[in-house]
Design a protein around this nucleic acid. Structure first.
Lengths: 367, 367
DNA sequence: TCCAATTATGAGAAGACGCGACGTAAAGCT
DNA sequence: AGCTTTACGTCGCGTCTTCTCATAATTGGA
């Protein structure tokens, strides 16, 4: 059953039009009133009312008027993307990446810190906070300048942002990550699985821009799957959607296992494979086979438009992709397209930014 | 990116309020103006305007006033569920079931016909048309009285309603089912996979009423899986979501294979199992194991709230369910609830009715 | 330097809609 | 018959949007 807008209507129209105006403003960059009105499908006057509202709320301001054209210069408005900021964090076993982005989602500060995979939880959290705080300070934000923050991490993260299972990071299980990060900046905090956030990032600005249903395969030191359907993240009831852990796939080998067996460094193997080394090529093929096995389960179940491969091992590039495509074609009736991740290792933090932005757009911009 | 409503005017308000009124009217049965207004969150006057609009469109009419209460009798209105009808069809290898339902989704006519599994496509289609037409004639509908029709069938059905693969029904592959059924009644026609429609039916009025994410397992002469996420059917890019055909699951046995091996009739085995027959119990357990294997792939991938088991073999009842729960618990981190189908063999046609109704509500009722 | 063409602004009128209020109508109850 | 109760119908107000038209502020050319 669909829920109908509970709000009675009169101010609703106002909100709707302000929303449309804001949308047009963010979409098209600085624009004159007339352009804006047309883009939003409103009359000039209505757009004007909406803009004065937005200006009052600090979300829009008048910009320098148009130059060089005949006629009375039009007032131009721009979206004040600097009115608020969001933090996106990637806290992994070995690496911490913090990003600070404005309301356009443009990353204006970023800090990278190395971590040890045996580092206790408290220390890792302190490191993450330091990285994020450094970004905020470098941008000289006022107190309350961070409107939302999201952490991505490996392991199962439930709806409330609590880590329910994590094998790779010591002391992580049971941690209320969303609550933690929210407290750091006194703002709403969120947490999600890394592969899921990577999927979000690729859909936002990466290889999956033009697609609404996709499967993301994170392969590397951390492994996992992310699922986006209808452009929305699917984490399932307990947040464990895509955790294939116990699915009995014949001949399934985890990527790390494959590479461990090979006994050489990943980069080295990929180089050798590209140079034509038979043995290295065989390893890449086994890797591709393993990834395809995992992906096939998701592909057969949800039949997505695209599979995006990311994570450290995706550096093997087209070589790996080609083999994956071949294996997927064997396993699936209608194999989907397969593409490389656009953002590589940054995708998790970027996805975290996007998720924080989702909240801001919903709650504070009223979109 | 969300698409924003292009039209922003006061007429939109009207539409919104009419929609809310219609919703309240359908939801709460015959009601007085005041009750209706409160239910829709509107003023009495606004509700009145909406109702006069609905009455003009034939969707509402005045009913007998309230009896027995003090005060001036309130005008009461009812939803004219008889204003339009939809047809839902289940065309299977051995059986054809046609249903005619009104705008409330209440089934007012239904016809069952047996078919032969080797029957050629043209003959099967003729049979289906006869079943459906018989329903329509029995209800004495005027021409154009059927507003939408949907067929459910086994096999992969693509977005446009064309059968792209069907192993069980001869001559079915390539058939434009949606087009066919639309032509029969001169109305929009739709087609979908049987397990998917069964899932829709269970979510609509069956075991999955209270749930938004579910996996449906169809087990019987026809087998398959249906997937509903956020209350919406997920068929994937090519319509083959949930077709696990080639997913390599160790030890996977199709239900039919299990029973064939047992060499006895299904009903007989279930009876024996309930009576405590060891051998029969073992067969049921193997059946449960197979079903759990298939379901586990979907469960691990989407982490649903509920698994509904339907189809002929679901007649094994709690016995089968209990074993399935045990097997699922072994295979999944967070095993979901498992429930029996409410509608059994009728669920496919019922889901078809619901899908036709979806179209009608969207396009003709403006909901 | 001045004037016409161009382009946007700002105010006012008109139309549509929803809501609250008040007087009135129609029933039951004593 | 009169009182109480409940709902109807109409009036007027406020809000929101659009249309129109006079006005303002530029550029480009004479």
């Amino acid at each position: 059953m669909r829920t109908l807008g509970v709000t009675n209507d009169t101010a609703l129209l106002r909100r709707l039009n302000t929303r449309a105006t804001l949308h047009a403003l963010r979409q098209g960059g600085p624009q004159t009133l007339t352009q804006l009105a047309r883009a939003a499908g409103l009359s000039r006057q209505t757009a004007e009312v909406a803009l004065s509202d937005l200006t009052e709320r600090g979300l829009a301001e008048e910009a320098a008027p148009t130059e060089g054209r005949a006629g009375r210069p039009a007032r131009r408005f721009r979206f004040r993307s600097e009115a608020g900021h969001v933090v996106g964090l990637d806290v992994g076993p070995r690496r911490i990446l913090a990003m600070l982005a404005d309301l356009n989602g443009d990353v204006i500060e970023e800090r990278r810190l190395d971590a040890d995979e045996h580092m206790p939880a408290a220390e890792r959290l302190a490191l993450a906070e330091r990285a994020a705080t450094a970004c905020v300070e470098a941008a000289r934000l006022a107190r309350g300048g961070v409107w939302a923050a999201t952490v991505g991490t490996s392991g199962v993260v439930d709806r409330s942002g609590r880590v329910s299972v994590s094998h790779l990071i010591p002391g992580w299980t049971g941690l209320d990550l969303a609550g933690q990060v929210g407290r750091w900046f006194g703002c709403p905090g969120f947490a999600a699985n890394d592969a899921n956030l990577a999927a979000v990032a690729e859909h936002w600005r990466g290889s999956a821009r033009h697609v609404e249903d996709l499967v993301y395969v994170l392969s590397g030191y951390r492994a996992g799957h992310g699922l986006l359907l209808d452009g929305r993240l699917r984490t399932g009831r307990t947040g464990s959607a895509g955790e294939l852990g116990r699915l009995p796939l014949t001949g399934w080998e985890d990527s790390s296992v494959v590479l461990a067996k090979a006994g050489r460094d990943a980069e080295e193997i990929f180089r050798a494979a590209r140079a034509g080394d038979e043995q290295a090529l065989a390893v890449v093929d086994r890797l591709a086979h393993g990834l395809a096995r995992g992906a096939s389960a998701l592909v057969l179940v949800v039949d997505p438009e695209l599979v995006v491969v990311g994570g450290g091992f995706s550096r093997a590039g087209e070589l790996l992709l080609g083999r994956m495509r071949a294996h997927l074609a064997q396993m699936c009736l209608n194999p989907p397209e397969v593409a490389l991740s656009t953002f590589g290792e940054e995708s998790i933090a970027l996805g975290a930014v996007r998720m924080a932005l989702d909240h801001v757009e919903r709650e504070r911009l009223g979109l």
